[in-house]
Amino acid sequence: MKNKITLLSIFSFISIFAQIPPGYYDSATGSGYTLKTQLYNIINNHNDQGYDSFDAFTATNDLDLYYENDNSTILDIYSENPSGTDPYNYTPITDECGNYNGEGVCYNKEHVIPQSIFSQNNPMRGDAHHLLPTDGRVNGFRSNYPFGYVGSNLVSQSGISNPTMNGSKLGNNINTGLFSGYTGNVFEPIDEFKGDIARIYFYFITRYETQVTNWNYSMFNGTSTQVLTDTFLYTLLDWHLNDPVSQKEINRNNAIYTYQNNRNPFIDHPEYACQVWSSHCNTLSSTDFALNENTTIYPNPSTNGIFTVSSTENLDTITVYNINGQIIERIQYSNVNVINNSTYTISNLSSGFYLVEITSNNKKAIKKIIVN
């Protein structure tokens, strides 16, 4: 539970930067599915701008102001390399297309919730909250597959590498622990954008809760309350909790409010997710508890830009994020025999606030550190 409590306090800290209209969430006073319906009543009946209008929105509001910071190319979650040079970049409008013969040729509009699910009907088709500009080939590669943790078997497809150029991948669902119950193929974006995808789904199944029971999709369970099957609800909550809201999401949420007059509540108030799906969050917390308790980070605060991670668990990865959600450093113990009581020192951090994600055997914990 401790790592989740820490995350909620972090989320509350981040939320103060969002430009939420006064009183917008005043009626969101309940808990569980009552809260979800209250949020539906707040965000429904948005001003549908139509699918074609999204091109102009993207040209202004989906630019890379966060990584390359060039203010002239599209931020594509399937090609962005958060810690290095992107494999390719796209100029808004100029590089948009419908036809492609490989990755890196052009971008188009992806429906994060596949539009075939809702028969391409409005207002879902043009809802900017779940429309993203992405590489055309990778968009086609992802197809209608659900999102999830990919196991050991990747799917081969001619004309595209798997993983893709930035590490997104398609393969069988990991199907272990809380993420078991689905044996088909899933698509997994890189860690940097997992929370973005989760919050888009939480928005969509809240905004359209009166219609979602009519849609047949492997991620959905046929209800208007939980909506997601346990497999995918645990997956998306895990992504939500372990990839906090970024400034990119906050800025985009504000722009969409101006564009179509509704907001994503799970960006403004990330704590809503665990208030709606509380039992699932509690289960996730209990599975991660041992990892959190058996891992320490010191000194905290750090006064010299150096801290050490020490754990009695066999760690898989250590990832350091800044307040904007950017990866500062990642240590991966793949193909390495890591012994218990492992320690790793991270240095050269500038002053600021950081999140440290630690993973071990499908368990995750997040701790915050401060460098003075």
Rank of each mutant, 00 (worst) to 15 (best):
C281T: 09
T225R: 14
N261P: 00
T235H: 10
P244T: 07
Y234M: 13
T287C: 13
T258F: 08
L236W: 06
F232G: 00
Y259L: 10
Q260E: 15
P265C: 02
E249Y: 02
N282A: 13
H269M: 04
A273E: 03
F232Q: 07
D230I: 00
P270M: 12
D288Y: 10
Q275H: 04
D243P: 00
Y234N: 15
V245W: 02
Y272S: 03
E271V: 05
F289D: 15
N253F: 10
S224I: 02
N261D: 11
I256V: 14
N253L: 09
P270I: 04
I250Q: 07
S246T: 15
Q226Y: 07
N262D: 15
L228F: 14
W277T: 01
W277V: 00
V276M: 09
L228Y: 11
F232A: 05
T283Q: 13
L233Q: 04
N242Q: 08
S224A: 14
F232H: 10
Q275M: 13
Q247S: 13
N253D: 15
Q247R: 10
N264R: 09
N262H: 08
F232W: 11
N282V: 02
N253A: 11
T287V: 15
E271N: 11
S246L: 08
D230K: 07
L237Q: 12
L228K: 08
S285K: 04
W239P: 00
H280P: 00
W277K: 01
D230W: 00
E249F: 02
D238F: 09
N262C: 04
N261I: 01
S285L: 04
E249I: 05
V245T: 14
Y257K: 09
W239G: 03
H269G: 00
Q275A: 08
F289E: 15
N264L: 09
I256S: 06
N264K: 10
T287M: 14
I256F: 12
N242M: 11
L237S: 04
S224V: 01
S286N: 14
N254I: 13
K248E: 12
P265S: 01
D243V: 12
P270G: 14
L228R: 07
K248R: 15
V227A: 11
Q260T: 10
V245M: 13
T287Y: 15
H240M: 09
C281G: 07
N262Q: 04
V227M: 11
T283M: 07
I250P: 00
E271M: 02
P270L: 05
K248V: 01
N261M: 06
L241D: 10
C274W: 06
L233E: 06
H240I: 06
E271I: 03
S224F: 02
N261R: 08
L233W: 05
I250C: 06
T258P: 00
A255R: 06
S246Y: 07
L237H: 03
